[in-house]
Each structure stands twice: as C-alpha cells, then as structure tokens.
Design a binder for these strands. Structure first.
Lengths: 367, 367
DNA sequence: CTGAAAGCGCTTACAG
DNA sequence: CTGAAAGCGCTTACAG
C-alpha cells in the first residue's frame, strides 16, 4: 500500500533544485518579467524533473483573481438550462475561465445561498437566471454586485437591478406563436402556461392584462403579452379562461387542458415551455383528439424529438446555447474592467416549421 | 458613478473593530477553539457591522482543502449527462462541496486539459466519465490519482486504473433489450449503435465477439455483449451485418438504417443511445414504415417524450441522476480519507414499458 | 537580470 | 480564554 502521498512540489523547491532564487523561478514559471535564457532553461528543467504544476489557488490568492465564474441556474437537468450552461462553459473556457455551477430550483433562498457561496469562493463574476420573478428581493445578488462582483442575468431580469442581461425576445416569440395560429384561422387559442398569477379566480381581460403589464417580467409573462398583442391586432377578444395562470407544472397543464377540453375546447393551444408541450401531448392522447386535425399546437423550446413526432411539431426554437455564450461574453468584458452602462441583449426566437406543415392546421369547420 | 469599490473587510479589520486579537476573531468566525461569551458577541457584532463574510479562498489556502469537486463529462447539454450532473450537484451540496464543471466532448486531450485545470485549482476530488474508450491513456487522470486526488469514474471505466467507478449494468441492459424482442418473436434484430470498431469491413461473428470481449469496455460495447448473450441463449446466430460498428453519430445511424432497410431489413432494432433512437425514428418516418407493425424498437435513455410518442416507446430507463449521486457519495467518502479497496458499483437499468405495449410488436408474418 | 522581503487573508500550534 | 507569530504557495515591488 502506498500511503506515502507524493506531495506536489512548490515553487521554492523548484528554485532550490534549479539553484536560483524564488523570484527567478516564479518569473519563468509565471511567464512574466525578464530572465536570462540560462536560468530559464535551468528552472524549466528542474520543474520538469520535479513534475511541478503551478498551484492556481495560491496564484489566485496573490493575484486577487480566481479565473473562475459562478453560474446559478434553476436546474441543470432541464434541457434549456443545460444548453445555456454549455454555451457559458464554452465561452468561459475560450477566455480562460473555469465554471462553478449551482442549481437554484427557482428557489430564492437557494439562489441567495448559492450566490454567497460563489462570492465566498471569490469567483470573478456571476451569471444568474434569477428565480422568484422580477420583483424578487435577491439580496445576495444585489449585495454581490454592490461589492464589485460583475453579474450578468440570463433569461430573466430583476426589477431595479442595474446588471447586464441577455434574454430571449419572449414577447415577440409569444406574438409569433399566436400569429401563426391566427393566420391558420384560429380564434380560440389557449395558452399553457401563462404568467403565474397568485389568484386562480377568473378576472376580466383588462385586469389580467393590467396585472401582467405591471407586475411581471418573467419569460412566460412576456410570452403572454405577445400573445395578447397578436390577439388584439387581429381583433380577437382576450378570453382569460383560455389562459392558464395557475401552478406552472406538468400536472397543472394537464388539469387545465382536461377541464378546458371538457367544457369549452379551444381549436389551438400554445405551450410556452417544454414541459408544457409534453403535458399537452399527453392530455391530447388521453382525450383521443387528433393532432393537428382536432387541435393545433405551437410549442416552445425545440427538441430533436419535435421533428420525429407525428405530426412534426411546430416549435419556437430558443437559441439557448447562444444565450449562454452571449452572457459569458458580456461577463468577460465586465470582468476585464468595463464600467460602461448597462446592457440588455435580446435574442430572436424562431419558428422551426414554416409553411403549412407541422402541428398547425386550420380549425375544424364545426368548431 | 460609484467607482469606490467597497472592499470586503478582512478578519484583521473585524478584530480591530471588535478590539480583540486576530486569533480570537478567527476562532469565533471559524467556529473552533474556545472563546468567552463576551469576546464572541463583540466579534459577531463587529462582523455584522462591517458586513464581514469569510474569504473561502484564503481559508482553502491555509486549511489545504477547497471544498470543491471537479466534474469532467462529455457534454452537459446531453440529457443523460445533464441528469448525472444534477445528481452530483445535489449530493455535493448536501456534503458542503461546490462543483466545478468541464465538458470534454469525448476528446481525450480536452479531458486531460480539464483534469489539469481542476488539479491546478486544487479540487478535493474528481468525478469523470472517461473519454476515448477503456484503453485510453488518460495520463492526467492517472497522474491526479497518483498525486493523491481521489477520482471516481462514472458511466465508463478505464482499464488498469485503480479508481472507484459507478456504472450502469450495461451488459444486463443490452441483454434485457434483446430478450424483450426475442420474446416477441424477433430473430433479425439490428443494433444501432454497437461498439466503435475501427474497421468497417464485415467480419465473422467470432471475430466481432472476440474483439468486443477483449478490447472494449465502453457502455455501448457492454450493451452489445448483452445483446450477443441474449441471441446466443436463444440460439440465434449473431449477424455482424446487423450491428452498427461505424461512426457513432446520428448521421451514421441514418446511413446504417437506410442501407439495412433497403437490402436486408431487420424486424426489430435496438437503439443504444438517445441520439440513436431519434435517428432511427427519423429514418423510419422517411422510409414510410409503421412502428411497431413493420419494425419494433427498443431504445435507451428514457425521456418524457417517449411516453407521448405514437406508439409509446419501449425504453430502457437509465437512472442517470442516481448514477451521479452515487458517484458523489463515493467521492465524499474518499475525500474524507477512506483508503479502502476499489469499489465498482453497478446500477440496474429498467424497461419502462412492460407487457405487450409500447413499440414492440410481433414480427410480420411475411418477414 | 536577480534575489530577499513583504503581502494576499485565513488557520494553527505555542506560549502566556 | 487570548494574542503574537509563523505558515499555506504564490506574486510583486524594491534594491542590487
């Protein structure tokens, strides 16, 4: 049993082995300052001989920079966030940064804890998809930003928070989804899910809109506003009964769809999240309806499955990986010292199935 | 413009503010040693007043422990690895560790670089899904392990590498997939994809088996062996023409399926990866075949989509998140000082659609 | 070009 | 219980 742990050699040991001073060894191993070719080669040789690798932790300590960025997302297992992380990781690596990742599960407390952890580990910057809606306190995030740690928001934005953000153009996407269906002749278009409104009581269209416009800036909230825009432009009255504002879960979608289909069936539905798409499909199957003859569907968050589904699904493709990349690029600029004004970057969302294909068909005559 | 960056207060400043020595402040802020109630409260008060947060970087430096684990996976955007990461992250947090994540893209060089980066940042341990097959050199990994950094392998194992591993019971899974199809009456069962054999020339069944048994321990390799086991047990000769051994990509699967369907169509197919499942479905659609009447399918890597597909797909469900959790648990034990013998943990893979349902039907009479 | 010394912000024996 | 001092492994002015 080898319980003699081979300690990693330090800079001093390399210096001694090479027969030079510590500073000289430091200069060649750290690639700075100037050294004679002679000492350089001696040091390099000694380093090789000892298997020296510089201790980045110590370097971070003295340089005051860790070359690490912190990332706080709802759930890395969610395909959307997984793609975002990938975009971040690639861009970070390109710029020489490592990535420390934490899941927040859309929980404000966990997010706060995560941010403190990251600041404690002295990350050079933070990318976050803020949980808890636009009005969340997000104390730790604001504290971190005040303390001088650059923060970039992705996919969501917090009110009264002066940090850069990179988001999808969700309102435009919601509008595009509804327009696609309206163009096919639909007027009863359900939205699963819409903004998470606390009360489940039915409200007037005006109240729903007013509430959405003022209190909420989440992505699904924005998508709802785009949907409302499209209806209004087409002269179709907004029916709050067609908008799911309750619990944003798969089970919630299934309940919503089931009761809707049983009472006042829509001719089309927009599913604003991947989970919602799958839940709608499950309920469609359960109810025996045919897609798209009996019900048209436009979904969000493209997936390879959408193309091989029968029928192929009409989906809005979010450039999730690009979103992550952009956020990382922005953060790198900030970490490099840019103090310019706040930036808000909107990425376009595209329909993947153009033409008359996909899961959109005209409404049935008898509908 | 506030360009006066609020520097974070240090332990010394808190001590001065509290009017005590540094060591005393350290003891209360670090929760160790003993201090009088009086000084404790003074220090706590001063810390609060100054907004002190301990610098984990400095703490790591002096304690020699970073409370961070490094994770090297092929691609975080892949649903399987995304789930694995989630399992790791949850377990790591539970034990108080942060997670530094790097993608290797199945590239041995990138993996090596990632491992060196992680060791440089002095992570306390590493979890890795080794790239490049069982015989890969994986120098950095071996070097890290020799140096005393605990390493746990997930999903794959390297030959001649004395590190713990947590893997799926892939051979058993491959066997289960084939048995399911054989039980339904199939004898011509294609495998997309099988082990990545360099040469694309056809070989004898014996040569293929011999090669797979000796040189390869990747997960798809194991799945192929299980498939072969099931065929042998059923007295069905192994036909190398039905086993895809070429390029393991979606395009490769489509080529393989297309030429197979055009020349000597199988009655069933096993798709050993999620990408392969989607590619098979795409080719099935293209060719106008019906699932499962014309072709039965058993896939790997369950997804919520499988349940809402028509027909619902018979899939082998890999407990990916559990895999990550187990690996992290194992690593925590090692990081805590356990020097016990190597551990190899096998997780069972389960069929999600039992009974006669799903995408498996008896072969057609005329086949 | 080169080396001794101080410093990054903690922790940890070691005396008092 | 408490404080001065040394140390973690680098980097960084500062003389020589």
């Amino acid at each position: 049993m080898t319980n003699a742990e081979p300690m990693r050699p330090t800079l001093s040991e390399v210096a001694r082995e090479a027969g030079v001073g510590r500073s000289s060894a430091a200069r060649v191993l750290g690639n700075y300052g100037s050294v004679s070719e002679h000492t350089r080669s001696r040091v390099l040789l000694a380093a090789k001989r000892l298997g020296y690798e510089t201790d980045e932790l110590a370097r971070s300590m003295s340089r005051g920079v860790t070359m690490t960025i912190g990332v706080v997302l709802a759930d890395i297992a969610n395909p959307f966030f997984a793609a975002v992380s990938r975009g971040i990781a690639d861009e970070a690596r390109r710029a020489g940064y490592g990535v420390l990742l934490v899941n927040s599960d859309e929980n404000v407390e966990l997010e706060d804890e995560a941010v403190r952890l990251l600041v404690g580990k002295r990350v050079d910057g933070i990318i976050v998809a803020p949980a808890g809606g636009a009005d969340a306190s997000a104390e730790a995030l604001r504290w971190a930003a005040d303390r001088g740690t650059p923060v970039v928001q992705v996919d969501r934005t917090l009110n009264d928070f002066e940090a850069d953000a990179v988001v999808m153009d969700n309102r435009d996407a919601g509008r595009a989804a509804a327009e696609r269906l309206i163009a096919a002749g639909h007027r009863r278009i359900a939205l699963a899910w819409g903004p998470a409104r606390p009360s489940r009581r039915r409200v007037t269209p005006e109240a729903l809109l007013r509430w959405a416009r003022t209190s909420e800036l989440s992505s699904v909230g924005e998508r709802f506003l785009g949907y409302a825009d499209a209806l209004e432009a087409a002269g179709i009255p907004l029916d709050p009964g067609l908008v799911m504002t309750g619990e944003q879960t798969s089970a919630g979608v299934r309940d919503f769809m089931r009761s809707l289909l049983a009472t006042e069936p829509p001719t089309a539905v927009i599913a604003t999240e991947l989970d919602a798409v799958v839940a709608v499909l499950a309920e469609v199957r359960e109810s025996g309806l045919r897609l798209p003859e009996d019900l048209s569907l436009v979904g969000f968050d493209d997936s390879p499955w959408a193309d091989v589904y029968t029928p192929p699904l009409t989906m809005l493709r979010q450039p999730a990986q690009l979103l992550g990349q952009r956020a990382a690029e922005r953060l790198v600029v900030r970490m490099t010292g840019d103090r310019g004004v706040r930036t808000l970057d909107h990425l376009p969302v595209e329909l993947n199935c153009s033409g008359g294909e996909g899961s959109v068909a005209p409404p049935r005559e008898d509908a």
